[in-house]
Simulated scan of single mutants.
Amino acid sequence: MNDIRVLIVEDDPMVLEVNKSFLLKTKGFSLVGEAQSGEHAYHAIKDKKPDLILLDMYLPDISGLELFYKIRNDRLPVDIIMITAARDAKTVQELTRLGAFDYLVKPFRFERFQQALENYARSRKKLTNKTELKQNDIDEYYRNTFEQQKELPKGLNEITMKQITDKLKEINQPVTAEQLAQNTGMARVTVRKYLDYLASISEVKIDLKYGTVGRPTKYYSL
Rank of each mutant, 00 (worst) to 15 (best):
L31Q: 07
N136V: 12
P60H: 04
Y142F: 15
Q115P: 03
T165L: 14
L195I: 04
S221G: 07
N172A: 15
T91F: 11
V105S: 08
E111H: 09
I4Y: 06
D207C: 13
D12A: 04
K125M: 13
K46A: 05
I171Y: 10
L168E: 07
Q173H: 15
G155D: 04
I159Y: 13
L67P: 01
Y42P: 00
L54M: 10
D102A: 05
Q114T: 08
L24T: 13
L117Y: 07
F110K: 15
T91Q: 11
N157P: 04
G38W: 07
L156C: 05
P60E: 08
A199Q: 08
H43K: 14
R109E: 15
V92A: 02
D61H: 04
L195V: 07
R109Y: 13
V32Q: 06
I164N: 01
M186L: 13
T91H: 10
Y42T: 04
D51Q: 10
L152T: 05
K162C: 07
L65K: 08
S221D: 10
G99L: 03
L222A: 08
E118L: 10
R122Y: 12
S63M: 02
Q182S: 13
L180D: 02
D56I: 01
D102S: 03
T145S: 08
Q114R: 15
D137W: 08
F29E: 05
E170C: 06
L222E: 06
L198W: 01
V92L: 02
H40M: 15
Q36E: 14
F113Y: 14
L195C: 03
A89E: 15
L24G: 08
F108R: 07
P174C: 11
V9I: 12
N144V: 08
L24I: 13
T165S: 10
F29W: 02
R97W: 06
L55S: 00
Y210A: 14
I71D: 00
V6N: 00
D102H: 02
L52F: 06
Y103P: 05
L52D: 05
I206M: 04
V105R: 00
E34L: 04
Y210G: 13
S202G: 02
S221T: 10
S21E: 12
K125P: 01
L67H: 01
V18L: 15
